[in-house]
């Protein structure tokens, strides 16, 4: 896992999780890895996203962890990769084989004001309070 870590008080940590790392994990391990990161206030980026079944479980487990004034749930966006992805950002960052699945960005709902997506960009506005 590549981690762009910044530990200042108002820093935002981004966890980049490679497809290879995810492949080794069971569904619940994947969900724990994601939600543990999100609980810590991190933005989690999955190189290859989740299967529909895993997404369904992620929603279910997230719901069980929501608690007033502590955790409001998640924001999630996926970004489907086009056929020509040889120069994709993550591909270059992480090296190795080009993934086929969708890039997925997940973050804590109470800190991400908007997770905005258009054709070629997912941008997250993270509040620092």
């Amino acid at each position: 896992m590549a981690e762009a870590t910044k530990t200042g008080d108002d820093g935002v940590q981004i966890d980049l999780i490679s497809g290879q790392r995810m492949d080794e994990l069971t569904t619940m391990e994947k969900i724990r890895l994601i939600l543990d990161g999100v609980h810590d206030g991190n933005i989690v980026i999955l190189e290859e996203g989740l299967t529909p079944d895993e997404e369904s479980k992620l929603i279910e487990v997230t719901m069980g962890e929501i608690s007033p004034d502590e955790f409001n749930g998640i924001e999630i966006e996926t970004y489907p990769r086009s056929e020509t992805r040889s120069s994709s950002l993550l591909g270059r960052l992480m090296g190795g084989e080009e993934p086929t699945a969708k890039l997925t960005v997940i973050g804590p709902a109470n800190q991400i004001e908007t997770l905005h997506k258009d054709e070629s960009l997912i941008s997250a506005l993270v509040s620092r309070n």
Binding site: I59, T62, M63, G64, I66, P68, N72, G73, I74, E75, I76, A109, N110
Partner: peptide, 26 residues
């Protein structure tokens, strides 16, 4: 939904009810 915030309901009901509604919603 992927998120529930009880404060969404506090205009319509008191805090305890809003918290209960959000827990039931999840």
């Amino acid at each position: 939904t992927t998120k529930v915030d009880y404060e969404e309901f506090t205009d319509e009901m008191d805090k305890d009810d809003a918290i209960r509604r959000s827990r039931e919603a999840t």
